[in-house]
Design a protein around this nucleic acid. Structure first.
Lengths: 357, 357
DNA sequence: GGGCTATGAGTAACCAGTTTCTAACACCGG
DNA sequence: CCGGTGTTAGAAACTGGTTACTCATAGCCC
């Protein structure tokens, strides 16, 4: 598993070079130029250096040039830590998600990262590992180190979120709506997506459905399941506990066969892909014997065999939009209304007419 | 000289309570308690509050209790910005990657996020969008806002990295080795992986190979291609320009058929999956007519049809290990040697005996 | 009982910027 | 020639912590 080494570990820094104040404080860059040194070198006050570095127009051109030259010569860059303190802002926004392995949150991460990056903001990321209380703690912690927060918190109780809502502001909630919470939320109309899927399946003649349920605590799973129950009035629906990962879906295949369902509605694309593989291994034809649908339209959904019928949700768009909302909030503009995105049904090869039997 | 009459200026901030200077500065929490207010409330000095908050043992128990009560009552939490400045460290580490959509970097992100989170460190993430110079700029920027850096920089020229190496320290390079760079690197033995694949394929009788090349600037692609050339002495190898995404591989399928290769070596699992789908659409049987291999073992690789033969690399382990190395470096321990991980061949269903022809 | 030491807590000097206030100076009009 | 005005740049206060010194007191030993 492990292998070769190569040297490395060079001189270390010149640490005690100066001698007298060797190792004076902790891990400071040691040689880093400060505003004071630049001021001294340019023969001006610190205030003037600050003004020049921030492009204030109230500095005469020749002085500004002298300061810039000195800054250049000393390779000076203002300390972000000092600016944070003085300005009271961090130039950073934070994202807290339950699971970085989930394509849903990866999409938000990407969209947010790009939007924030374009605006010159840094991005702090924290993963709560799907623990409800951890979500809350990390959110508070992350928020203290940033100017605003994007929070994906499918597990934390609504009351808990409301109780700390004030301390999290400005923030945006994604993939969830919490009534009464003083923050805009960007969510998916899960019910509409499920209705589209069910309509598609019943249109194909399916009457016996199986639902592969997501994680019990998940708000998204609760919504999808409720919508499914509502949309399948006269039909037979079996709910099978499953999960959210490939292997969960894979493991559920025998149960699906046993129940004799003609169509399987997966909590998400991953369990749907898993069950796809599992069914094939059991010799069940998809979509000839059983139809399968997913949810989310993860990048891989079009490359399964057969390609997965699913509903598409705008993951990166959520990230981009979260940035826009957050930006508005940080500037004191309202922008506090909720958006619920409509998923789009994508019919691919994994669904077909119900077997006549 | 400083004036600071210590309690003389305490008066100052109580006038904010009224209306006169409402909205005085930018986005400060406004009501947030400071160490001074806690000190006042507890009737002690700021130094004592600081000592209590940091668990210094040189405070008498009753005083400590009084301070803690005051802090609790005021809902006080030390300002991270002020601590950063005073301590000269940020409590944060940074990760810079070219593309957050790539499972390779997602794996590192997860491993690093979990390891750093467990150690109570925050994680800053930046995406360079595969631009060589952007990689460098973002790395410098991210490093200035953190105590250490994990850098995945497949595009930036080696000399450029060396020239800024000192300013990035402490840092760890992943998925790449740059001789002479003063930082440990964690990389994959691409050559060994390619050799394993080639041995596997030739063992099955394949003599005409096609390589689906990755992005031209990528260091990983260069290594894999060089290793392929070295490992396929007497064989016929066609190199097809491709890319790194599903669609790139999908689009390359016709060219593969045209060249009459009996085995396709994909730059990574995504192009391999893409070509898998493309070949099936063209009516080419895998592995009966053509064998296909990938690289990286992304989570999806075992769920393609047929499951993808590939080599596995320890993505999350790289992230965890990067944290360990970084931690050692930040504590002044050496730990600066390089590690090159050996990939592991995973034979699945996408490879089989060469057609007899 | 007096000197010595250990201990707890306060003072003030940092960290490295930003910003308000103020003073000096040039320019202008009366 | 003088007062009013406008510009420029500096002095100093401010962001909110940490920590090296310092000092007072209490306990201990001789």
């Amino acid at each position: 598993m492990r292998a070769s080494t190569e040297n490395g570990d060079q001189e270390r820094d010149r640490d005690g070079g100066g001698g007298p104040r060797a190792g004076r404080r902790g891990p400071r860059p040691a040689g880093a130029a400060t505003i004071s040194r630049v001021a001294e070198a340019a023969g001006v006050s610190r205030a003037t250096v600050s003004r020049v570095m921030n492009g204030s127009p109230t500095v005469s051109p020749e002085l500004a040039a002298r300061v810039r030259a000195a800054a250049e010569a000393l390779d000076y860059a203002p300390s972000p830590a000092a600016r944070r303190l003085a300005l009271g802002r961090t130039g950073t926004i934070a994202l807290v998600v339950p699971d970085l392995g989930n394509p849903l949150f990866q999409g938000v991460l990407r969209g947010l990262s790009q939007a924030a990056g374009k605006a010159g903001r840094q991005l702090l990321v924290a993963e709560s590992d799907e623990d409800p209380e951890e979500e809350v703690i990390l959110a508070l912690e992350a928020r203290r180190n940033s100017d605003g927060l994007v929070l994906a918190s499918p597990r934390a109780p609504a009351e808990r979120l409301c109780s700390i809502g004030e301390r999290l502001a400005p923030f945006v909630l994604v993939y969830r709506e919490v009534p009464g919470l003083g923050a805009p939320s960007l969510s998916i109309d899960n019910a509409a997506g499920v209705r589209d899927l069910v309509a598609h399946l019943t249109g194909l003649g399916h009457r016996r459905l199986a639902y592969l349920a997501g994680p019990p605590g998940s708000a998204g799973n609760a919504e999808r399941l409720a919508a499914l129950r509502a949309a399948t009035g006269g039909l037979e629906v079996t709910v099978l506990p499953c999960g959210s990962m490939f292997d969960d879906g894979h493991a559920a295949a025998p149960a699906v066969v046993e129940r004799g369902a003609s169509a399987v509605v997966g909590f998400n694309d991953m369990v749907a892909s898993g069950v796809l593989t599992g069914l094939r291994e059991l010799g069940v034809g998809v979509p000839d014997d059983v139809s399968v649908t997913g949810f989310d339209d993860i990048p891989f959904a079009r490359y399964t065999t057969p390609p997965l019928t699913t509903v598409s949700i705008p993951k990166s768009e959520l990230g981009r939009q979260a940035w826009e909302r957050l930006w508005a909030l940080m500037n004191g503009e309202g922008g506090g209304y909720n958006v619920r995105y409509q998923p789009r049904l994508l019919v691919r090869g994994s669904t077909g007419p119900a077997p006549s039997r």
